[in-house]
């Protein structure tokens, strides 16, 4: 660390202070996140794999306005994973990714809405988001470990920070891009601020917001291997072990499963909102 500018020391001091004074809060977060993930994972694990695969395929079919291709992709992709005998790891990875993404969106979308309504919020968020996006994701691992110990939760926290910027940015952008005449119409008909948001801004911005959701999930998936370095389990751990033991086959199989999940989640999120057309 530099002796001239004590930036590193300052960060250490802040991290130490937070750890010392907000330990109870950090523990609370850890408990809640652990309950969320294990509840999700246990719930899925309670269903026999083949039945769960069919349920996922049907869900994909319904979510994408009856897109049979994506349903089949889900069905055969998951069957492939099942036959690779990586089913329980996949379920945990899915639970980690979806929980992280859900928390990210629950924070990111409201922040994006706030940023779209107030330029001051937008301006103050911008440098923070720039920092979050350009900082190498490994750097998040260090404070995550100090605050949350080793395990799934620090991995998810690092994932949430890493996946947050596109959710905020694209929500903000989507709402700001709503054509000005649509806003004028809404006001001219006497809408309240809330009506304007839920009846016009969010629906018109939805394709852009969904692009943010898609990005957020993809980034969360890309963090699975990195999060494994601080004790997160699931497919990421298998890849990491493959690297450490030079187990090419095992690492490749786990990597392939991550790709399959990525493709399935990507196709589903891209097709949830299709632009309306004349019948």
């Amino acid at each position: 660390m530099s002796d001239i500018l004590p930036v590193g020391e300052a960060i250490e001091a802040i991290v130490g202070w937070i750890d010392a004074n907000f330990g109870w809060l950090l523990d609370g977060i850890t408990t809640v996140m652990n309950i969320l993930v294990s509840g999700f994972q246990d719930g899925m694990a309670a269903v026999p794999p083949l039945i769960l695969i069919v349920i996922f395929a049907v869900l994909a079919f319904l979510l994408t306005k009856k897109n049979i291709k994506i349903a089949l992709l889900t069905l055969f992709g998951l069957l492939f994973i099942y036959l690779l005998e990586l089913w329980s790891e996949t379920l945990l990875t899915l639970a980690l990714v979806i929980t992280s993404a859900a928390v990210t969106l629950a924070i990111g979308i409201p922040l994006g809405i706030l940023a779209s309504r107030s330029s001051a919020v937008d301006m103050s968020l911008r440098p923070i988001l720039d920092l979050m996006q350009t900082m190498p994701s490994f750097v998040y691992l260090i404070p995550a470990v100090i605050f949350f110990g080793l395990g799934n939760v620090p991995g998810m926290i690092a994932t949430i920070i890493f996946a947050m910027p596109p959710a905020i940015r694209l929500t903000n952008l989507g709402i700001r891009q709503v054509p000005v005449e649509l806003i004028e119409v809404t006001e001219a008909f006497g809408a309240t601020g809330w009506q304007k948001l839920v009846k016009v801004q969010l629906p018109v911005a939805m394709p852009t917001i969904m692009a943010g959701v898609n990005q957020c999930i993809m980034l969360a998936l890309s963090m699975t291997v990195i999060a494994a370095m601080i004790g997160a389990r699931g497919l990421g751990l298998n890849v990491l072990m493959g690297i450490q033991r030079v187990d090419i086959g095992g690492g490749f199989e786990a990597g392939l499963c991550i790709v399959i999940i990525a493709i399935i989640l990507d196709r589903i999120t891209q097709n949830v909102i299709s632009t309306p057309h004349d019948q």
Binding site: P179, E181, L182, E184, V185, E187, A188, F189, G190, A191, T192, V200, P203, V204, M206, T275, P276
Partner: peptide, 22 residues
């Protein structure tokens, strides 16, 4: 009062139609 006025007394029509696409 303004909102009530806009809701009940004045309708507006725009050059670009301004219909909600969804």
């Amino acid at each position: 009062e303004l909102r009530e006025l806009r809701r009940t007394k004045i309708g507006m029509i725009f050059q670009s139609f301004a219909l909600l696409p969804h």
